[in-house]
Computed example of a mutant assay.
Amino acid sequence: MTSNRHVEMDLGPDWIVRMAWPEEGDIQGGPIELLVTPSDPQAYPAGGISSTVLRSVDFRAATAQLRRQLASADRWRRRSDEYETGRIERIRDALAKGITPEYLALLSSAYVSRVNSGQAKPVERLAEDIGKSLQTIRGHLWRARKDGLLTGSAGRKGGQLTPQASAILSRIVPNAPQSPIETSQT
């Protein structure tokens, strides 16, 4: 299955069907891939795949499930984009008050989140989003490490927020979602 737009369904106790739709475009039609496998790969059902098994594939239910999955992913993406926009605004507002622990904690949180989500060139992207030079943001992250808000080594990607940084963030952004991504180690 090469598509990220896929659905998996049980076909009774013995079989699983995986269906995939094209990455782009409408999902009005059926899937472009169909893979039927035994529920237990160690014990193949007697007789193999039959026409009865194939007739039990419910394409309408699979399409409805895919639509729900896509709608949920779209809602999550919109909330995530809104949160990230607000985060950048909070960072800019904090920076306007100087290089404070609050600013460094916010910057570190955004940095760790981007590194852990696999974003390419997270420092460069933060610099662009905040409107500061790459060297300035690198220097601020170095300072966050030096001040005990971010673990890791300067010049090496990654790290994690310290309890001190988490406490600052809890105080200044009390309703922020608690993301395991921001506190996990890389």
Rank of each mutant, 00 (worst) to 15 (best):
R67H: 08
R67I: 10
R67D: 10
R67E: 08
R68D: 11
Q69L: 04
Q69N: 08
L70W: 03
L70K: 07
L70E: 00
A71I: 03
A71L: 09
A71C: 07
A71V: 04
S72G: 15
A73C: 04
A73P: 05
D74L: 09
D74W: 01
D74C: 07
R75F: 09
R75N: 11
R75S: 08
R77F: 05
R79V: 14
R79M: 12
R79N: 10
S80K: 11
D81W: 06
E82G: 10
E82V: 15
E82P: 11
E82N: 13
E82D: 14
Y83W: 14
Y83L: 05
Y83D: 01
E84I: 00
E84D: 13
T85Q: 15
T85S: 14
G86H: 09
G86N: 14
R87M: 14
R87N: 12
R87K: 10
I88P: 03
I88N: 02
E89N: 12
E89C: 12
R90V: 00
R90T: 05
R90Q: 07
I91A: 00
I91W: 02
I91E: 03
R92S: 12
R92G: 10
R92C: 12
D93V: 11
A94V: 09
A94E: 03
A94R: 02
L95S: 07
L95Q: 13
A96H: 06
A96I: 09
K97R: 15
K97H: 15
K97C: 13
K97S: 15
G98D: 06
I99R: 15
T100C: 07
T100E: 04
T100L: 02
T100G: 04
T100A: 02
P101V: 12
P101F: 04
E102F: 08
E102G: 13
E102L: 00
E102M: 05
E102D: 15
Y103L: 04
Y103P: 03
Y103M: 05
L104E: 06
L106W: 03
L106Y: 07
L106M: 01
L107S: 07
L107A: 01
S108E: 04
S108Q: 07
S109P: 00
S109H: 14
A110K: 05
A110Q: 04
Y111N: 02
Y111D: 11
